[in-house]
Simulated assay, not measured.
Amino acid sequence: MTTLIPSSTYLLLSAIAALVLFPQTSLALEPVAGAFTASKSCPALLSTKKKTNPGNIMLERGRSYETLGLNRVGGDKLLIKIPNAPKSSQRWVALACGQLTGTAAKSATPKPSSEKPKATSKSLESKNNVLALNWQSSFCEDLPHINECRQLNKGRLKQAARELTLHGLWPQPRANEYCGISQSLKVQDTPSNWRRLPDPKLTRRTERALEAAMPGYQSHLHKHEWLKHGSCYKAGGGAEEYFDDSLYLLDEINSSRVGRFFRDNVGHKVSANDIRAAFDAAFGKGAGKRVEIKCARDGQRKLITEIWVRLYGTISRDTPIADLIQAARPARKSCNGGILDRAGLQ
């Protein structure tokens, strides 16, 4: 004999099943099948309402994830599966942080609407920026006592001795600093106090990359850069995206003909025109005019200390750095040339 289940009981059982399968989702989950490939480093949240992220899990650019569902038909949040994530492998991410493939792409297509779209985190992200890069050997002539300079001068930072290193990524105009930072925290932002500043929320992968690309990490420079400049970058992925974008730009320059020019001329005197010509060769005619060269005196010598690269546009691995440079306004030279100092006190 077949026992009929009342409709109210059936709905209750369905709801319980949904909670078991998707403990952190709403019951309005729109199931999708396919894959999601991350194009940005964004947080993977356990709960979108509470903004909880156990383990500080971030999307890895270029990695594909299994999709589970959207927050609604044509929604803007996607539930994906991240194996071994603490608490739950099911995490919510912003749909704008990547691309869907397969059936998922069709499910995510939004319905036409006459409503004015709301501003997204991407639309708020700083588009007018300066990428500040150090020539570490010159910097260390003036501060040989700090830890990273002692390491450099002992020959332990071989990469920093022959390549440009990261100082910071600065939203413009220059007065655009300390966004949303309390006055009490701003007054603590001095070099002698950097170690006491709050740690930016970063994955271990990004921390390791910063340790190699930013020698000043040993002196907690990254904390200062995030507080003063990163707070105004307004990337949806927070500090992780800010530094990930900075590292991407640095890698693009060091792996280009600009990086080769610097490696080939360590210890030699070069002109600002030579440096700008290297940028033209790497990123197109006119790119060099968007580069400002900074110098400092060391006794009778003039040393090249920094390169400031102007950028305009949304920074993404999908946007060539050449396009970002070409779209920016021209920069002054500041310095006509100097020596690319060798590591060690001269």
Rank of each mutant, 00 (worst) to 15 (best):
M1S: 15
I5A: 10
P6T: 04
A17F: 15
A18K: 13
V20S: 15
Q24G: 02
T25Q: 10
S26E: 14
S26A: 13
A28V: 10
A38H: 04
A38V: 08
S39W: 06
K40V: 01
P43R: 15
L46P: 00
K50F: 03
P54M: 10
I57M: 10
I57K: 03
M58D: 00
E60S: 11
G62P: 11
Y65G: 05
T67K: 09
G75R: 01
K77C: 05
L78M: 01
K81T: 11
K81Q: 13
K81S: 09
I82T: 06
K87Y: 14
G98K: 03
A108Y: 09
P117D: 13
P117C: 11
L124A: 07
E125P: 07
E125N: 13
K127N: 09
V130C: 03
N134D: 11
C140N: 07
C140I: 04
E141K: 15
N147D: 12
R150C: 01
Q151S: 09
N153T: 06
K154W: 03
G168C: 04
W170H: 10
P173Y: 09
G180N: 05
Q183C: 02
K186Q: 15
L197E: 01
P200Q: 11
E207D: 14
A209R: 02
A212K: 12
Q218I: 09
K228F: 06
K234D: 05
D244N: 10
S246H: 02
Y248C: 03
L249M: 15
E252G: 05
V258W: 06
R260A: 14
V266L: 10
V266R: 12
H268F: 12
F283W: 08
E292I: 01
R297W: 11
G299I: 08
I315Y: 02
I321M: 06
I321N: 00
I325N: 00
K333I: 14
K333V: 14
N336S: 11
A343P: 01
Q346R: 09
Q346S: 08
